[in-house]
Computed example of a mutant assay.
Amino acid sequence: MYHRPRLIPCLTIQDRGLVKTTKFSNPRYLGDPVNAVKIFNGKGVDELCILDITATSENRGPDFEYLKDIASEAFMPLSYGGGITTLTEIEKLFYIGYEKVIINTSFILNPQLIKDAAELAGSQSVVVSIDVKNELFGKRYCYINGGSIKAKEDPVTLAKKAEELGAGEILLNSITYDGTMKGYDLELVKSITAAVSIPVIACGGAKDIIDFKKVLEKGGAHAAAAGSLFVYYGSHKAVLITAPEENDLVEIGVYKM
């Protein structure tokens, strides 16, 4: 049997369309998210992460009708983030077929929601998302509201807080590396994995499966998420919904005996 760390396509949606951003800006329309899910069904991916990137900034909750359509086509575990502010919304997401909820802005504005969600469904179903931007003099700052509002605490402090509140995982997303396909921010990932005992999902910057290996081995991440790697092909970023072949992952050492 192979040891298989989780490799997670992270699909960002806006106005019911699949989009891909660069540094959380300039969303490029790529097609229908439901079609992408159908393709991933045949690729054997471990789980899918669905993020509505404008729900919070538009001051609305999850689009349950559309999210239900997506879930009805998915044969793999699903997580969802975007606009979640209440326990009722979390319950509804579980009801329509999502295994995990991803909470970013409400983690800062209403930390009690993390506690309540963990008590409701168990820590394994609650993921706190921490979005980080590298700024002057090597400083890193966390952002909420789709990357538009700076939070007071630094990434390590927030990661520890998420664990204390009962989150079962951290989705660590680099705004600076998002969509650049230049590799993960390994130093950022290492700083978080060293600070908490819960699993850390690294996201932002993956170009190829070698980047998966690096972030898992050198960064200490428990799982590797990516957007561009799963939706683009080639240097000109032609749209192609795809996933790495298992043989290639074994050969390069991402999957190990």
Rank of each mutant, 00 (worst) to 15 (best):
R4S: 13
R6A: 12
C10Y: 03
I13E: 14
G17H: 10
L18N: 05
L18G: 01
V19N: 01
K20L: 04
T22K: 05
D32N: 13
K38V: 09
N41T: 08
G42W: 12
K43L: 15
E47H: 03
L48R: 05
C49M: 09
T54S: 15
T54A: 14
N59Q: 13
R60D: 09
G61P: 01
E65R: 14
I70P: 04
S72Q: 02
F75S: 08
L78S: 13
S79Q: 12
G82F: 02
G83V: 07
G83R: 10
I84N: 00
T86M: 05
L87I: 15
L87V: 06
T88C: 00
T88G: 01
L93W: 08
F94L: 10
Y95V: 03
F107D: 02
N110F: 03
D116A: 04
A117E: 04
A118C: 11
G122M: 08
V126H: 00
V127I: 15
V128Y: 03
S129N: 10
D131E: 14
N134Y: 00
E135G: 01
G138E: 08
K139W: 06
R140T: 07
C142I: 01
N145T: 04
G147D: 07
K152N: 11
V156G: 07
T157I: 11
K161H: 06
A162S: 03
A162L: 03
L171T: 08
S174P: 04
G179K: 02
G179S: 02
G179D: 02
T180I: 14
G183R: 03
A195T: 02
V196G: 09
V196C: 01
I198T: 05
I201V: 15
A202Y: 04
G205D: 03
G205T: 09
D208M: 10
I209D: 13
I210P: 00
I210Q: 14
D211H: 12
D211F: 11
V215K: 06
L216I: 12
G234Y: 04
G234R: 10
G234C: 00
A243R: 09
D248Q: 08
L249R: 09
L249Q: 05
E251R: 15
V254M: 01
Y255W: 12
K256A: 02
K256M: 01
